[in-house]
Amino acid sequence: MAKRSLSRLLGLFLLAVVAGLWFTRPQHIEASAIPERDPDLTNGERMFWAGGCASCHAAKDAKGDDKFVLQGGLELKTPFGLFRVPNISTSNAQGIGGWSTADFITAMVKGTSPDGRHYYPAFPYASYEKMRYGDLIDLKAFLDTLPASDNEVAGHDLDFPYSIRPGIGLWKLLYLSDRPFEANPNWDETTNRGAYLATGPGHCAECHTPRDIFGGLNAERWMAGAPNPEGGRGRIPNITPHADGIGNWSAADIAFFLESGFTPEYDSVGGSMASVQENWAKLPGEYREAVAAYLKAIQPIASMKAEDDGS
């Protein structure tokens, strides 16, 4: 009797595992779902800078044209373990040279590799999923013009249970919205443009918004500052229009910061934001002004004390 109920329990468990794997299986976007478009390389390059590709995928401390060599290899030390940023150059052997546009859009929007594995969300596809197909097509076309590097990057070294890749499917069920960017009807065109740039390609929230215990962004504290994802002393700042954040910055101050790297007190940008600011300095002024308008329009939120969120 006991044996029978045990085997029944085991059967139920296996069924749950199979169902779980089915519901959390890596998703793809078919080539037929992607619109026809003549790629616009100028826009592709703008998406490259707004998306910050080089900040993670170029060599550590790369400057100038070396930022176009997306050889990977940067090591990100996180509470989940060590991530090694992959080579996404046009190398067929080591990079993504052989990818189709559908492969690329699937990676950016669904976090799935061409061979059907989940990517870890250290690759910020939970933000990139908001990007428009047109922008992704242009970005892919621009990446195709960049040099190939045969730099070989080792895999990640993650702690258990994060090392179990199928588990990411569950994370995606919780945190991928599966919806494109939606404009806020109460905002003007510039503010919505900034919202798209900041939340989609710019993926600002990935660092400026704290995460919950499963590593998903806490929407209640949107852009209100967070522990440094790479650990160590110091926090990623609150960039909401609250007095604890950048409430005393004008929109022009924010745009000037993104252009020059200087705050209204003429302190300079530092840390991982330095590279982000360099990217934004390469974009036309209206991109920075749009993001500034968005950051003035979001909910002001007080900062948390460091000890309240475990930093």
Partner: peptide, 17 residues
């Protein structure tokens, strides 16, 4: 001149608490 501020703060200064 100003680019040097970023370059140093990127590597050698921590975020604020």
């Amino acid at each position: 001149v100003a680019d040097n501020c970023q370059a140093c703060h990127e590597k050698y200064r921590l975020e604020k608490n």
